[in-house]
Simulated scan of single mutants.
Amino acid sequence: MSTTKVRYEAENGTARITLASPEDGNAISPRLAADLLAAVRRAKADDVRLVVLAAEGKAFSVGGDIRGFGSAENVEDFLDDLAETLHHAVSELYRMDAVVVSVVTGVAAGAGVALAAAADVVLAARSARFTLAYTGIGFSPDGGTSLLTASLGLHRVLHMALLNPRLSAEQAQAAGLVAEVHPDEELPAAVERVVSTLLAGSRTAQVATKRLLREQATPLAEGALRKETLSIRSCAAAPDGREGVAAFLGKRAPQFPSGQS
């Protein structure tokens, strides 16, 4: 399968899904989200044992397509459709009978963080950086960010979401987001070692373990994803959200109406 925004390859029980829009930092546009969902569903139909989710270029994903937000005729409908498509892909990654490994190089921002975290095992290059950044443009998080409270803890995620720090790969590992950090030049070999280890193991035990732990940690995942959609579409249409997008596109600091005395 070949698409403009996502590349899919499957061999020997492993599907490799690669975000392939490096010219815009793999921004999550409607096209990329749709292509991602199609690729994940293709992996499920191929009954692969392992999915490796990676990206081309200098960024894993810069997050949502803010230019698309700015040009949308109806930003609420645009965000609802976009978030729901992305959330379907995230839900499939959570529920599929395959171990999912994400490989983060460069920046993962906004929904890019949540997408990386949709994997069961997150590997990162030492140069990788992670930041949520939603509130910086007047938005609330989506992509499954709220589900990170189950793995990282409420107050750590609140800190990340409200103050928008940029975490190094080592800081993300210390927080519990990243499983392994490797020097950039050693990351490809490290990924292949993880792939080989997983493929040599018991698929029955791996699938049962994934189901057990994910159901215990996030039993209401799909409901949480829908709540994220409703929240982000509302924020995007509000004055603060419109100002945040305009400021981002205008390369200036936002002046949020709700913050003006």
Rank of each mutant, 00 (worst) to 15 (best):
G223A: 04
L93S: 02
L147G: 11
E92F: 07
A247H: 13
A34T: 09
H159W: 08
K210I: 13
A190L: 07
R31E: 12
V122W: 08
A236H: 08
V6H: 04
D65L: 05
I28P: 01
A83M: 00
R31K: 07
A236W: 03
K58M: 13
L167M: 09
S71Y: 01
A108V: 10
R129N: 05
P22A: 02
L132C: 02
P239V: 12
Q216F: 05
I66E: 07
L177N: 06
F69S: 03
M160T: 06
L115A: 13
R67F: 01
R41M: 13
F60E: 02
M160I: 10
E186D: 15
A124D: 15
D65S: 12
G13Y: 04
R95G: 08
V157E: 10
E76S: 14
R226Y: 12
T18W: 05
A125W: 04
R16H: 09
E23V: 01
L158T: 08
L187K: 06
D80T: 03
E228N: 05
D47P: 15
S2K: 11
R42L: 11
G13L: 10
T85N: 00
A109K: 07
R226V: 12
R7E: 15
A38W: 12
H88D: 15
A217I: 02
A15K: 05
G25K: 03
G176Q: 11
V113E: 03
A224C: 10
S71K: 08
D35E: 13
S202Y: 07
V195F: 00
L225H: 12
A124T: 13
K5S: 15
E222Q: 12
T135L: 09
V207N: 11
A27Y: 02
L177E: 08
A27R: 07
A253K: 14
P183Q: 11
S258R: 04
S61A: 10
R233G: 12
Q216T: 12
R252C: 06
V195Q: 06
A174F: 10
A33H: 11
A33K: 07
V103C: 11
Q216C: 08
T3I: 00
A161T: 10
K251T: 05
D80W: 00
